[in-house]
Design a protein around this nucleic acid. Structure first.
Lengths: 347, 347
DNA sequence: CTGAAAGCGCTTACAG
DNA sequence: CTGAAAGCGCTTACAG
C-alpha cells in the first residue's frame, strides 16, 4: 500500500482494488474519463496536449487498464482460444509459436488448450474457454463431439480450423491434404523399386488415418497393397515405439522392404533400432517418416520424410482469424499450403 | 440468431450480446439473480429444489457465465500467467503440462508466454499479462529486467519461481540446484577416470551458467580444470549444433576424453556425429547430457544424463501458487526437488 | 475535439 | 436460506 497516492487511498472503499483506475487518471490529468479512454486506445481524435497530459498521468500512477472492465463494456475480448492435440509433438509447438507471433502484435492473447487427442477433453476445454467469450477460435482438425459442435455454433465466435482442409460451406481452414502427402511418400518408395511397403503408426488420430488412406491408394494403384503390413498402434508415438515397431515388422514380415512411419519420432527410433540390430538402411529396408521434425536430418542415415508447413499454417490461420474478428469476409476460406518431399538417404 | 428465445430477443438492446445472462436464468427459473449466482458457484447455502430449477434454466438457455463480468465484480481473475523461455526445449513443455493439469481442476486458465530467453521479451509479456490482472504468476528463473521487477512488485500478485531455488526472503521457488547437478555429473565422469572433460553449451541462460559453475567446481577440486575446454555458444541448442561441437572439440583438443553437454539435444547430436565419424563412445570419449529428454535412452549408446524433475516442479509450484492465491501462508517457501544421475552406456 | 449519462453482467456486503 | 441495492472499471452511443 505504501506507493498508493494519498488522494486515492482516502477514498478507497473496501471493494476497490489498490490499482489506479481510469477515473484516477482523469482526475490527475484534469480531463474527462472518456477522453482518457480515447487517448488510451487508438486516439484518433484527441488533442495532442491532452494526449500528453493523459500519458503523464498514466506514467505517474503506473496505471494499467483493467481488461475485464474493458471486455465487459465493449463486449469484445482480447483472447483467442487455441486448441491443439499435444505439445509433445514438436509439430504443434511450432504451429503454436507461429500463431502467437502473429496474434500478439494485434493485442490478442492465446488461451492454449491441449486436448490429448481426446474429443471429451476437447469438449471440456471448449466449454471452459467459451466462457471467456474469446474473440476467436483456432481448432485442430474436424473431428469433434456433437456437443462441441453445438457449443461452437451457439458461440458465434469466428473459428479457423488447422492442419486439414475442408470444402464444407462456412468452414474456414488452413492446412494441406494429409491423404495426398501419404500417397506421395509411398509413391516415392514405389518409384525406388520397393514393393513390400509397411505403414507403421501410433496415435491414430484422423490425420494419421488420412495418411493411411493415401498409403492404401498408392499401393492399390500399384497392385501391392497388403493389409498385413499395416501396423496401427493406439497411444502416443515415441522413438521407443518406433524401434519396437521396426523389430516387430522385420520379425513378422522378413520380406518387408520399406516402412512408412506416420511421424518422424517413430522413424528416428526405427533408424536407431536398425543401427542397434545391424539392419542396413536403406539397402535391406527403406525408412520414411512424416513432418520433418528436428533431428531427422541428423540421423544415420538422414531420414527421408515429408516436410509439413506448420509455421505457415499457424501464420496464415492467424491472419485469417484476424480478418474474421474484424468482421471482414475472407475470400479464400480454404488454404491448402501443400507439403514437400524431403528425400534423404534412408530411402 | 435463430436459436435465441423470443423473450430475450424482444428486449435485446443494441449493446447487448446474444448470450443469455444471469438475469435471464433468474427470470426463467423464477428466483433472484443472487440465488442464481450462488447456485452457479459453490452453492453452500442454496435449497436443493432451487438449485435444480436454476440448473434446468441454465441447460435450457445454454447459459455460460461471462468471466469478464465475474472478474470485474469479484476483483479476482481465473488467469494464471506462466512465462517460460522456450517451447522448443521439451523440458518446458513437460513443465507446462504439469502446471496446466494442476491448475485446471481449480478453475484456473494458464496464460502462456514464451520469452525466448530474452528479458526484454519477458518484460513486454509481463506488461501485457499483468493488465489481465492475473490471480497469480509462474516465472522461470530469477534473471529479469529492473522494469519487470518493479511491475511485479507493484502488481501484488502472488508469484512462484520455477527451476531454480532461492533463499531470498519473500521469494517462493520450486526447483533444484543447477550447480549441484552440474557438479554431480562431472564428478561421475571423474570417477570413471576421465581427466580432460569439456563443457559444451548453447543458449547460455542463467541455468546453463550455473551448470558451468558446478562443472568448474568439480574440475578445480580434482585439479584438472582447463578453460580451453569450455565451449560456450550463444543461440538455441539443437542436435545439429551438438554434432558440430563434438567435431570441433575433438579437432581442437584431440586429448579430450569426455564431454558434458548442457542439454540432451546437443548430446544426442554428438552421439550421432560420433557414429558418423567412427569415434567410439565411450571408449575414446565419454558423452553426458542434461535433463534426460525423450529419446536419450534410445541412443546408440544410450546417453548418460541428469534426470530433472520438471513434472514435479510444475505440480508443486502450481500447488504452492494455489495456496498463495487462497491467501494461505506457505511454510516451505523454497522446494528443492533434487535430480537423479542416469548412468547409461555413453560414459 | 470533448463530455454527461447509462449500461455491460456479474458479485459484494448488508439485511431479513 | 433468500433478496434489493450498489458498485466493479470500463465503453457505447448520443450530444454539443
Amino acid at each position: 500500500m505504501a506507493d498508493v497516492p494519498e488522494r486515492l487511498r482516502s477514498r478507497t472503499p473496501s471493494r476497490a482494488s489498490s490499482h489506479a483506475t481510469l477515473d484516477d487518471v482523469a482526475r490527475v490529468s484534469g480531463v474527462s474519463p472518456i477522453t482518457v479512454s480515447r487517448a488510451l486506445r487508438g486516439a484518433r481524435n484527441v488533442a495532442p496536449d491532452l494526449q500528453a497530459r493523459v500519458q503523464a498521468a498514466v506514467d505517474e500512477l503506473g496505471y494499467v487498464p483493467n481488461v475485464a472492465a474493458r471486455a465487459l463494456a465493449s463486449a469484445r475480448s482480447s483472447h483467442v482460444a487455441v486448441l491443439i492435440p499435444s505439445l509433445t509433438n514438436q509439430l504443434f509447438v511450432e504451429l503454436l509459436e507461429a500463431v502467437q507471433d502473429a496474434l500478439a502484435p494485434h493485442g490478442f492473447q492465446s488461451l492454449i488448450g491441449v486436448t490429448h487427442y481426446d474429443p471429451a477433453e476437447e469438449e471440456a476445454l471448449l466449454r471452459s474457454y467459451l466462457s471467456q467469450r474469446p474473440a476467436g477460435l483456432l481448432l485442430t482438425g474436424f473431428d469433434r463431439s456433437a456437443a462441441s459442435l453445438r457449443m461452437l455454433e451457439r458461440s458465434h465466435a469466428p473459428c479457423v480450423y488447422l492442419m486439414e482442409t475442408s470444402a464444407a460451406p462456412g468452414i474456414h481452414s488452413v492446412g494441406f491434404s494429409q491423404q495426398d502427402a501419404g500417397r506421395a511418400i509411398v509413391q516415392h518408395l514405389l518409384a525406388r523399386g520397393r514393393r513390400r511397403i509397411a505403414y507403421a503408426a501410433g496415435q491414430l488420430d484422423p490425420r494419421v488415418m488420412l495418411r493411411l488412406a493415401g498409403y492404401r491408394e498408392a499401393l492399390r494403384a500399384a497392385g501391392c497393397h497388403d493389409p498385413a503390413l499395416e501396423l496401427l498402434v493406439p497411444g502416443p508415438t515415441s522413438m521407443a515405439l518406433g524401434g519396437r515397431q521396426f523389430e516387430d515388422l522385420l520379425a513378422r514380415h522378413p520380406d518387408v522392404d520399406a516402412i512408412f512411419y506416420c511421424n518422424d519420432d517413430l522413424a528416428q527410433g526405427a533408424l536407431l533400432a536398425a543401427l542397434r540390430t545391424g539392419v542396413p538402411v536403406p539397402e535391406r529396408v527403406a525408412i520414411a517418416g512424416f513432418n520433418d521434425l528436428g533431428g531427422s536430418d541428423q540421423m544415420l542415415p538422414p531420414l527421408t520424410t515429408v516436410r509439413t508447413p506448420r509455421q505457415a499454417i499457424g501464420e496464415r490461420a492467424a491472419s485469417m482469424l484476424l480478418a474474421l474478428m474484424r468482421d471482414e469476409t475472407v475470400a479464400e476460406r480454404t488454404l491448402d499450403l501443400g507439403f514437400e518431399l524431403m528425400v534423404r538417404q534412408s530411402s
